[in-house]
């Protein structure tokens, strides 16, 4: 069953990402996702970018199709929400390195807030294509995280993919956990860097989702179903899967390269 909610706030975070806030009471944890029904269009899995209290939020990047339509949603629009589904980031480690590529910051920001509230020291490696696309740079700084940015074009911070700052951070600081979310090829690199340093590492992955109830198999990832056993996995588990960073399934269930 879905709850029909009304969008109360719309924030253009970057040229390509928009946050929508709406009242939705069920308790949620950082890392969990909801199914968002845009009546007449589609229903998409969206990780919650705001998990605390009665006002939840999603932050959507325009990828095309429905996600572009979601961007055009104005306050007052009604959406159908079900969930939250899936597991969460464990916020108990005391020194956490967060690696966010592009819109991956939307998934990681609420976990960073909860971890800092619990006394953790959080460092964020935040990467985007350009300075304007750096998502939640202010939010991470305001919550008290140390933020290092990278951009593909060098318009802010180190030039290159976010992984260029991850290796030096891991070499010079002690961490109890690494959390990552972003392009899967980046996540795979981060997982390998964390493994090389012996740091526990967790990543939030994305797959097709239809039922979100562990039944339809659209989100099958190796022996797992992302909707129930994910979206957050130990990257040691992910690295065992040939498809991690390599392929996903399309809506028909065909294997397609990432």
């Amino acid at each position: 069953m879905r709850t029909i909610v009304t969008v109360q706030e719309r924030v253009a975070e970057t040229p390509s990402t928009v946050t929508l806030r709406f009242p939705y009471a069920p308790a949620a944890a950082p890392g969990q996702f909801v199914m968002v029904w845009i009546p007449g269009d589609d229903e998409l899995p969206m990780s919650l970018s705001y998990t605390e209290g009665a006002s939840k939020g999603i932050t959507v990047k325009a990828m095309g199709g429905t996600s572009r339509n979601v961007q055009r949603i104005e306050t007052g629009t009604r959406l159908g929400i079900r969930g939250p589904y899936g597991n969460q980031f464990d916020p108990s480690p005391k020194r956490i390195l967060i690696v966010a590529g592009g819109s991956g910051a939307a998934v990681l920001a609420p976990g960073a807030e909860r971890a800092i509230a619990g006394g953790a020291k959080v460092t964020v490696a935040l990467g985007a294509t350009t300075e304007a696309e750096l998502l939640f740079r202010e939010r991470f700084a305001t919550m008290g995280a140390a933020v290092e940015v990278t951009t593909d074009d060098g318009s802010a911070g180190a030039r290159g993919y976010v992984t260029v700052v991850v290796e030096p951070l891991l070499a010079t600081h002690a961490f109890d956990a690494v959390w990552s979310c972003g392009p899967e090829i980046m996540m795979r690199k981060v997982a390998l860097l964390a493994r090389a340093r012996g740091v526990a590492s967790y990543g939030s992955v994305e797959r097709q989702m239809k039922c979100a109830l562990g039944m339809c198999d659209a989100c099958a990832l190796g022996p797992f179903h992302v909707c129930v056993e994910g979206p957050v996995f130990s990257t040691e588990k992910l690295l065992e899967l040939p498809e991690f960073g390599a392929f996903k399934r399309d809506p028909a269930g065909r294997r397609v390269r990432l």
């Binding site: 069953m1 879905r2 199914m35 029904w37 269009d41 589609d42 229903e43 998409l44 159908g80 239809k210 039922c211 979100a212 109830l213 039944m215 339809c216 399309d250 809506p251 028909a252 269930g253 065909r254």
Partner: peptide, 15 residues
Amino acid sequence: FPRPGYPNPTIESYD
């Protein structure tokens, strides 16, 4: 042939 199925929502679950 490959078939993507219908757009979501494709499920309504009752307790």
